[in-house]
Simulated scan of single mutants.
Amino acid sequence: MARYTGPKARINRRLGAMIYETAGAARAMERRNTPPGMHTRGRRPSNYGLALMEKQKIKHYYGLGERQLRRYFDAVSSKQGNTGELLLLMCERRLDNIVRRCGFTKTRPQARQGVAHGHFLVNGVKVTKPNYLLRPGDEVEVRDREGLKNLYRGVIANASPDALDWVAFDSENLKATVQGLPGPSDISLPVDANSVVEFLSR
């Protein structure tokens, strides 16, 4: 999606989840976790509204545009298995998501920016597309520049990376190796993916 530059706490409050992980958005969510606006309290959204909110969670969390989300949906809808799970598992394999979950950055927008600026190599080749889908055997590492390595070492030292069974992370050499494919338990976003599938199938 086009990079969202508006108030992140407002999105978190509207969707009722910590979609954006910045410190300011987290503090604002703690202070006021009700939806924004004067006339939203006490109103129960329709089934359509609930499904739309779940879809918005996926788009904001993974940084997807509408067309990109539908491309992912089209790619998994013909495969066997739970379409909602397959959709989220495809999102989990994105380069910017793995950069974030390994602890290279504190938020997904930071990971997206780092990838777009060419800070990371995949199998020794610079990749600038945050939506690059990683496969088993792929290696992600920081480019061999002292400034970049010092930057990411500092972030990792103060970060709490997710423990991923399918990705091995070497914090000393700033390298992540994809060892397999993610499973349903590896999905990091709590969302009703089945309602999103129904929404996109209309």
Rank of each mutant, 00 (worst) to 15 (best):
F73T: 00
K79S: 09
L134T: 10
R112W: 11
P109V: 08
V115R: 05
Q68Y: 09
L148K: 07
I98Y: 10
L87P: 03
R112Q: 14
R70Y: 02
Q80F: 08
H119I: 01
L134H: 07
M90Y: 11
E85G: 00
G147N: 09
V122H: 02
R71F: 06
T128R: 10
A75T: 05
Q56T: 04
N82D: 15
C91A: 14
G84Y: 06
D74E: 14
A116R: 12
L121P: 06
L64G: 08
K126M: 12
N97W: 00
V142Y: 07
R108K: 01
R93L: 12
G137S: 00
R71T: 12
E146P: 02
K55D: 13
K79Y: 06
K106L: 13
K149C: 07
R135L: 13
L95S: 04
V115E: 13
E139K: 12
N131F: 08
K149N: 06
G84N: 10
S77K: 12
M53T: 06
V115N: 10
F104D: 00
V115F: 10
D144E: 15
T107Q: 06
A51S: 13
G114E: 13
V125T: 13
E66L: 04
G103N: 03
D138M: 03
A51W: 01
L87V: 10
A116M: 11
K55V: 03
D96P: 01
L134F: 09
L88P: 12
A116K: 10
D138A: 02
H117D: 01
V122N: 06
G137V: 05
C91F: 09
K59S: 06
G63E: 14
N150E: 14
E146G: 08
L151P: 00
R112D: 12
L148Y: 11
E146W: 04
N131I: 03
K129Y: 05
K149W: 07
R101I: 03
L89C: 09
R112K: 12
E66G: 01
K126P: 07
N97C: 02
Q80E: 11
S77L: 03
K59I: 04
V99I: 15
R71N: 14
L87D: 14
N131A: 14
Q56G: 01
S77C: 08
M53H: 11
G84R: 05
Q113I: 07
V76R: 01
N97A: 09
K106R: 11
Y72W: 03
A75N: 06
V122S: 12
M53D: 15
L86A: 14
R100C: 13
K129T: 15
R145N: 12
Q68D: 14
K55L: 04
Q113N: 06
Y62V: 00
G118N: 05
K57V: 07
R108A: 04
R93W: 04
Q80A: 13
E54R: 01
G118Y: 08
R71C: 02
P130W: 03
V122R: 03
R70N: 13
L88C: 11
Y72I: 09
N131P: 02
E54K: 02
K55T: 09
L64Y: 03
N131D: 15
R108G: 04
A75W: 01
R93T: 03
T83P: 03
F120R: 04
C102A: 14
L87H: 06
